[in-house]
């Protein structure tokens, strides 16, 4: 294992402090916790937004703390859900009297720990709601399983629900808007390499020179199928057609897209994918109104990418375009 670390045990703690050092105008650490909250809190009477999860997905989640997106981000150990006491500390930091919306990716551990944190908040009279993000279409949704995972599409939920909260909407409204985003979003990703979880010290899986792992999540876990390596055009088309089918998009609909690096894949390769995406969208007679390209939801140093499509309507398009100012995403409207 070759990583820029001092000790496995101190990775998250050091990284949180480092984020504050790099982004002091945005972030402050809630003392004694793994919570990063806005340096300048949102005004009283507005709904707070909390997200979080395991670490290793940088810039998620603290990178989205700031005006127009999150109020606080809670970090767990690498790829491990944060504990209820930490989530609750995040809820308290984000509460400005109008309740707190928790944006949770659908993983067993995250769901349980955020649930217990909600019980703690409930006992203290802080109203909370949850938006469960399950945008990964690689895994089947079924009554009998855990359901789909939440991956990169979560960032769109942060953005659009965050803009809604900033407008002064009620907790019920912000939740409804978040749920609507989830209902109109689909993502899927692939890996060219595995990643090495620091606690384990070796790559989680091995891939041959001409193999890729299709349908991976964001924890270095194996995907749904091993496939031969493809060209950028074929990879983009493979994901794109599945997403379009899943969302049942028809000509003249409007979409936003995200081309997300899993951590090691450079921008130059993402840009090639973005080019293919634009051509595919044109071919389906859809209107591509916004592309986010870069590292948004990563899996440590995994090479690979994910593609997300979000169906837009007027309101979602407006909120996606609303001003936001965070370490990882800025929308400037002037």
């Amino acid at each position: 294992m070759k990583k820029i670390i001092d000790a496995v045990d101190t990775i998250v703690d050091q990284a949180l402090d480092g984020m504050v050092i790099a982004y002091p105008e945005y972030l402050q650490r809630v003392e004694g916790t793994s919570v990063l909250a806005r340096r300048v809190p949102k005004g009283t009477g507005k709904v707070g937004l909390v997200s979080g999860g395991g670490s290793g997905h940088e810039p998620a989640h603290a990178g989205y703390v700031g005006y127009g997106m999150l109020d606080a981000a809670v970090a767990g150990e690498v790829f491990t859900s944060p504990t209820p006491d930490q989530v609750y500390a995040g809820i308290k930091a984000a509460d400005h009297g109008a309740g707190v919306l928790l944006v949770v990716k659908n993983y067993t551990g995250d769901v349980m720990n955020f649930d217990i944190a909600r019980e703690l908040a409930d006992a203290d009279g802080i109203a909370t709601e949850v938006v469960l993000v399950n945008d990964d279409i690689a895994v089947q949704d079924s009554l009998y399983t855990t359901g789909r995972r939440g991956i990169a599409g979560t960032v769109f939920v942060h953005k659009i629900a965050g803009a809604t909260a900033e407008e002064g909407a009620s907790l019920a409204t912000v939740k409804a808007v978040g749920d609507e985003v989830v209902a109109n979003i689909a993502s899927m990703g692939f890996a060219l390499t595995s990643c090495t979880v620091p606690a384990n010290g070796k790559p989680t899986f091995e891939l041959g020179e001409n193999e890729i792992e299709m349908g991976v999540g964001i924890h270095g876990e194996p995907g749904i199928e091993r496939m031969p390596m493809m060209s950028a055009a074929d990879l983009t088309a493979f994901l794109y057609h599945r997403l379009v089918e899943e969302l049942a998009l028809v000509p003249n609909e409007r979409v936003a897209a995200m081309v997300n690096s899993m951590g090691a894949t450079p921008g130059i390769e993402l840009a090639i994918m973005a080019g293919h995406l634009a051509a595919l969208v044109k071919g389906s007679q859809l209107s591509l109104e916004k592309v986010l390209m870069g590292e948004f939801m990563t899996s440590l140093e995994m090479a690979g990418a994910s593609l997300t499509l979000l169906r837009l309507d007027d309101t979602r398009a407006r909120r996606l375009g609303a001003a936001c100012d965070t370490p990882a995403l800025r929308v400037v409207t002037h």
Binding site: P82, T83, P84, M112
Partner: peptide, 15 residues
């Protein structure tokens, strides 16, 4: 356990 393990295991063993 609930405040140190994390993940599903922490929530389950802890609660």
């Amino acid at each position: 356990l609930m405040s140190t393990v994390g993940g599903a295991s922490g929530a389950l063993w802890g609660s």
